[in-house]
Design a protein around this nucleic acid. Sequence first.
DNA 1: AGCATCATTGTTAGCGCTCACAGGTGGGGG
DNA 2: CCCCCACCTGTGAGCGCTAACAATGATGCT
Lengths: 362, 362
Amino acid sequence: MMLITDRSLMSQTVGRTGPRRAPTMADVAQLAGVSHQTVSRVLSNHPNVRESTRADVLRAIGQLGYRRNSSARALVTRRTLTLGVVACNPTLFGPSSTLFGLEEAARDEGYMVSAVTLRRYSAAALREAIDHLSDWGVEGIVVIVPHREAVTALAELRLPFPVVTVEGGHNLPIPVVSVDQWLGARMATSHLLAAGHRTVWHVAGPPSWLEAEARAKGWRSVLEEAGAVVPPPIQGDWTPLSGYRAGQELAGRVTAGAAGRGSPEVTAVFVANDQMALGVLRALREAGLSVPGQVAIAGFDDIPEAEFFTPPLTTVRQDFAALGKASIRLLVSRLESGTTQGDDERVVIEPRLIVRRSSTPS
Amino acid sequence: MMLITDRSLMSQTVGRTGPRRAPTMADVAQLAGVSHQTVSRVLSNHPNVRESTRADVLRAIGQLGYRRNSSARALVTRRTLTLGVVACNPTLFGPSSTLFGLEEAARDEGYMVSAVTLRRYSAAALREAIDHLSDWGVEGIVVIVPHREAVTALAELRLPFPVVTVEGGHNLPIPVVSVDQWLGARMATSHLLAAGHRTVWHVAGPPSWLEAEARAKGWRSVLEEAGAVVPPPIQGDWTPLSGYRAGQELAGRVTAGAAGRGSPEVTAVFVANDQMALGVLRALREAGLSVPGQVAIAGFDDIPEAEFFTPPLTTVRQDFAALGKASIRLLVSRLESGTTQGDDERVVIEPRLIVRRSSTPS
DNA sequence: AGCATCATTGTTAGCGCTCACAGGTGGGGG
DNA sequence: CCCCCACCTGTGAGCGCTAACAATGATGCT
């Protein structure tokens, strides 16, 4: 008996000695002269607590610097309030902006976000990433891996928690949030066509990327509708270097003259992203071609640098932050509603064409 | 008795009915015909388990699709194996690359990373971010908020878990991992000076940023050592737009001629980051000035676009991924050793000068 | 043979919290 | 005056796991 009393006193008085372990709810309860349950009620804002009691408890909490133990809470409530994100290439402007918007939205909703990044996509890496997240008890995940195979692999996975994908393609039974890439490509291409160009060339992204595919499709659709010749798209890999190479090829076509056998002349190019557009711009300039004088260019993404390219780049702006927010809203809504089905939900965000000098000869 | 037997059978057979809750260690134990403790042993690779028993358990685990409950585990071990990160401006190339490297390193070490992003720095926002992380039970945090006030605020916080900062200034009792900004600035400035310029102008970052300060100091130190005039630095805010404005000012000085009262002529500029350098380049070009012909330029960061600027930008490369990895190593080492003190540890990574055309008249 | 030792397994007691329920108090209606 | 019903508070159980210890059998050594 004595011993017990001693111990309880010690835990409050000793303080200095040893790495005193974090105060528990019971400590707060004792100090406030109530039961641990009352402390719990105060913490969860239960209405039926007398005002004075609540104040006592809060004072004790402040005094002890008490923080609720999230593991214990998660154990009993079966809610970790944590969401997982799998992202690829998180160094690029798009993914990182999305991640940012997503995290902020999640925090507002009371969730924590844990991210796993993939250096390159592979089915194994994706699986591993998801395993890792699920080991940590996430309640749902957002997958930002706009690879065709990734998304199909995902659809086959049948996970025990909800999954939402960003830019994940529209043919699968997984909820998707995306910017309308197809529409964006159409906007850029139409814009160039409207400026009087006979046709528009295209520097495409890697074919396994869904965005690249959608942008190429949008571009092609406009040309076909307009009855314009559809030049062969040039393959890039999103990097400025690949854009540079594509630009060299295009420049070669220009200077070789319209004498080229059958190929339409190059007077306008829609490049699948801004980084590659930068490379194209440089290649053209090195070839002595003026933009937009001889060749008009449009990009995609509207990275912060685009406005300061030489010349400033006409491009398609994507609201990445909105993308992140929307994905969280979607995920949280099915978390709260307990819905696992209804897997065909779609949120599509409209892109916006930003016209700058690279496409407008003045 | 009958009832109990029934229930245990149900939990295995029913399957279809109801949202059968995740299997527990006891379920595995029962199926494998061992005690839950043995299952635990198998899972934690305890050596003293007979090989056949281990196999039985693993089979049961596979059969049931069992996953260890991380909350329960964390509750009893007092280890969440989760690290927190607070990052500012995570949309920029530097921070996002650091975050990426950091996450990867943490995963290798067996930790999960949860990030909180700050739209803009403020003491309140920082506090809030840290509170959020600590509510979720992180074991330590990495702070990537290279603001002077942020770091001092941090030093005063006295948190119950280890903290490491990235680029956090060297005068505080907090372990820091950083690239040697001062040295990088010196490399760029010396390089320009060595090319024969009488002095080097500077477009600086926001003064409250530690990197901006260190880069300005490095720049100044080289000029002073060389006995060169130190022109007044021009203030930017990291954005291309601010660089553009700075560029206009510099261009004005050039075209106004060396007739300016006292100011040295502008023939070389060290810009505190690549994005601003992009703005400067454009302003100079618009003013009809050639780079590097009339004005040589150097930047900082080596963003992927820098190589494709017009002209390609001489800049200082920072190994952000290494930064992330090093910060995790530092954090984990003091986590494992239980050290809370020894707070003056420093890891400094050397930057590398990347010389391109913007500084080398050919 | 007899006892210490080791490998292997089981048993028990919590970790800190929330949930479900059981009290106790006071006021208004019958 | 009593009962019912709001309010407020406390008690007990148990979430799924690990740590400490106990128990068993097999082995080795004297």
